[in-house]
Write a protein that binds this DNA or RNA. Sequence first.
RNA 1: GCUAAUGUGGCUCAGGGGUAGAGCAAUUGAUUCGUAAUCAAUAGAUCAGGGGUUCAAAUCCCCUCAUUAGCUCCA
Length: 641
Amino acid sequence: MIKITFPDNSVREYEKGIKALEVAKSISEGLARNVVGAVYNGETIGLQNVLNEDGNIKFLKFEDKEGKDVFWHTSSHIMANAIKRLWPDAKLAIGPAIDNGFYYDIDVEHRFVQEDFEKIEAEMKKIVKEASQLERFELPREEAIKFMTDAQEPYKVELIQDLPEDAVISFYKHGDFVDLCAGPHLESTKKPKAIKLLSIAGAYWRGNEKNKMLQRIYGITFEKAKDLEDYLKMLEEAKKRDHRKLGKELELFFMSESGPGFPFFLPKGVEVKNELMKYWREVHKKAGYVEIESPIILNRQLWETSGHWFTYKENMYTTIIDEQDFAIKPMNCPGGILVYANSMHSYKDFPLRMGEVGRVHRHELSGALHGLMRVRAFTQDDAHIFMLPEQIKDEIKGVAQLIDEMYSTFGFSYHVELSTRPEKFLGEIKDWDLAEAALQEALVELGLDFVINEGDGAFYGPKIDFHLTDCIGRTWQCGTIQLDYQLPQRFELEYIGADGQKHRPIMIHRVAFGSIERFFGILIEQYAGAFPTWLAPVQVKVLPISDKFMDYAQKVKKQLEALNIRVELDSRAEKIGYKIREAQMEKVPFMFVVGEKEAENNTVSVRERQKGDLGAMSIDEISSIILDKIKNRENDSPQLL
RNA sequence: GCUAAUGUGGCUCAGGGGUAGAGCAAUUGAUUCGUAAUCAAUAGAUCAGGGGUUCAAAUCCCCUCAUUAGCUCCA
């Protein structure tokens, strides 16, 4: 129910959903120009920000997320209030709600440490107890600036100054605290009773690294203590899936101080990677790709032609060979282009899909490194597609479909972003419009949901990004499809058209996994290390009851090996319970227990990692089940999110 | 790169100015066992690296490196 108070003090109630549109309509017709609040989920929230400055409806959505946003936004005000009480010289910057909680950026002499959290939390609890009403008021621009100047809030003054001329400048006040804010807010400070400050970090004012670094405090609040407890427990659980932890425990990969950002892969990790690449080649071959390889190190002249030497140099590892500058490739495109340019092409060959599994090196900032997700050397499952302008849409569709097919194989859900022309761009606007329309149409025709990132495209072309989520909800860009108008021109690429004349091809640059390393990291977290059988580094572990049955166990192992099943034999003189426990912790999909019974009947007692004991089966029977799972790449991980 | 925190045997962690401690793993021996931990013994660390303060530094201070959480950047 949405309760709207009208200027004549009459109150009308509306249903959620379709009725909300009526509310919107009455507001836009001026009936409720000065609406003060709406009730959502039993909580009164402000409605002012549903109006544009011109009185038109901008935003009217009554979903849970908004309820949470309001709750956490008010919480951020409470935190700022508490900090101002404890450190009166603190200057406030911005403090929004985020997906999981809220933060506030603060400029203050005092260096916050973890021990301060308790103090701040205690002060916040006092403010909650005070249960002050949140009151909204507006000020004309000049007065607002003066107000904030007097309050010694230089960041707020800057924010006001940057608002459009005709913007409504609103403030929210509760108790002894006032903040420049568009709202909306809770009615009172009494609700966020369960409070937890989570972390402290530096953040540049306005996100610009040239600006001063402020202190950002993250927190989360709930109405009930139980909800907070559950949330913290959930975070704790999520951390157990962390690919860095599992990578070590399951002996998949490791990082060494000898090569920060350069991962080492252990035999088991390589098994998984190889299986991924086998799948990749199969799918790409079917989709009409050819595969090439280009060198890791290429000379300066090439990188100058591509533009990287000037625009990307600080990220490139360079070296000198025979008194000439060379660079280790940070991207595969120039190499791929040399392959294209190596021979003449006809329009009849298009679209020409040229894949390359290429290892690239980029000198990322040390602080940006993150397990396998952000490394300095990684392998892109790259491809460059050369085509005619009229082939763009279908080709994009094909690639998006391919990526969707691949992600579905892993049971992943993902979200798609379409990034459009940035302020600085190369080429003609009409080409950009054409390309953006083609990208968008392709996505719409495929029925994929996507969000548009206005102006976030690369300077050489618009792009579609595919994002996957890690164990604690951070999203990572994996697949991407980028149109590139720049490189074909820089390298003067050509093809012979139907008219016998030379033309410039359209080029797209795309990756499906993105980076094999990052994808592997996501994979580990999504499966919590329990890979589906087809990917599992060890698919079957043979566990003899005692040494007496070692010969039979060996025989079973050989039989499985002959079928290309990845099998290990636990030949230690341990009890069966111990061996099972270990195999279980290694997340091996199948355990074959063999003892006297099995050796006599030529069977194995099958134990599946999730379902437990499946009873005795002949080796033929169980291996055909396993081979089927492998062949179909069945998604039998018990851990999928 | 920036802000903050952290760095102790292979792993997880305790200790926090008086010459290093646990559990797991490892090794050896015994046990030959029926579905998530058999028993015993042994070995393993100049406490990230370097410098300083001190009679004495893993512990306090400084620098460097790495890691973690963010920011910035990005696959």
